[in-house]
Design a protein around this nucleic acid. Structure first.
Length: 271
DNA sequence: AAAAGCCCCTGGATGC
DNA sequence: TGCATCCAGGGGCTTT
């Protein structure tokens, strides 16, 4: 579910509310992707200092240590004083003086990992190879060109890999390539500088607009305050196989790349 | 080093 | 109605 916009929308929906809260207790349910990495009881009494985001990870800074939270494919957070009784898919719960943070994740591809800082080997194993942040100033178009130039795989796959630029998942990869007029199957290294510049701008614009729309709610995404997103209504190609292109009217095509569906307009994205 | 495939897991939609 | 199959927003690990 969650790509950069959904993770950022989630962050914005509870960062201010949880700021300064003191942890009362932490409970882990069924195993997520990785073990927490510390005794949950050890976290009681610590104070939440910030909620940051790196790629699709949320980093919850405590006055000592940090929780790395990943939502996987089906995870969502909710933060509230008044939560219904926890269900079978609620696998992490942190009670604080400002409310309870709960992770619901049916498929359990998500994770909550504790590290004493984001520089420890355990944290770097998850964060160390991540690419540039697309919405920050360090997303430099020349560095982007160099990064893409080193890879011969299809541009869609290189975007998804997240080691050149982070946060672009399966929905937004198709959307971004549509906006840039680039065929998803073209080799990354064969993109000219002007086309890379167009892609760079498209990534920033699509992701920023998606954040503003509250993310995409395809099945069950909602922010930590329970709000659904609306960006899926603006999708130009994702999930629109066989439907007319909103720009030229051609039938949207679907192909599979690396076991994931890709959508594009054969006319607007000729090469 | 980079690329391609496999796999983790549950649930909803579709087809017979 | 029941059962099998396919598909889903991610990404680490293993094999080429």
């Amino acid at each position: 579910m969650p790509e950069l916009p959904e993770v950022e929308v989630t962050r914005l929906s509870f960062a201010d509310r949880i700021f300064g809260a003191k942890v009362v207790s932490v409970r882990m349910g069924k195993a997520l992707r990785w073990p927490l990495g510390c005794n949950p009881a050890l976290l009681a009494g610590r104070t939440v200092r910030a909620v940051r985001r790196r790629g699709k990870y949320l980093l919850i800074d405590l006055d000592h240590g940090v929780l790395l939270v990943h939502l996987g494919m089906s995870g969502s957070l909710i933060f509230s004083h008044q939560l219904p009784p926890s269900g079978v898919h609620d696998h992490f719960e942190m009670v604080t003086t400002h409310g309870t943070l709960r992770l619901n994740d049916p498929r359990r591809f998500g994770a909550v990992v504790y590290a004493s800082s984001d520089e420890t080997p355990e944290a770097l194993k998850l964060l160390g190879k991540l690419g540039m942040e697309p919405l920050s100033d360090d997303f430099d178009v020349n560095l982007f060109h160099v990064g893409l130039g080193r890879r011969k795989a299809a541009i869609k796959q290189v975007l998804l890999a997240g080691d050149v630029v982070v946060g672009v998942g399966n929905i937004y990869a198709s959307e971004v390539l549509f906006m840039a007029g680039i065929r998803p199957t073209v080799s990354s290294s064969r993109l000219s500088q002007p086309r890379v510049a167009k892609l760079h701008a498209a990534i920033r614009e699509v992701l920023a607009r998606a954040v503003a729309a509250g993310g995409s709610t395809l099945r069950d995404f909602s922010s930590a305050s329970g709000k659904v997103g609306y960006f899926q209504l603006e999708a130009m190609v994702y999930g629109r196989d066989g439907q007319p292109c909103r720009v030229c009217g051609s039938h949207i095509k679907s192909v599979r790349q690396g076991q994931r569906a890709t959508f594009y307009c054969p006319h607007c994205q000729k090469f």
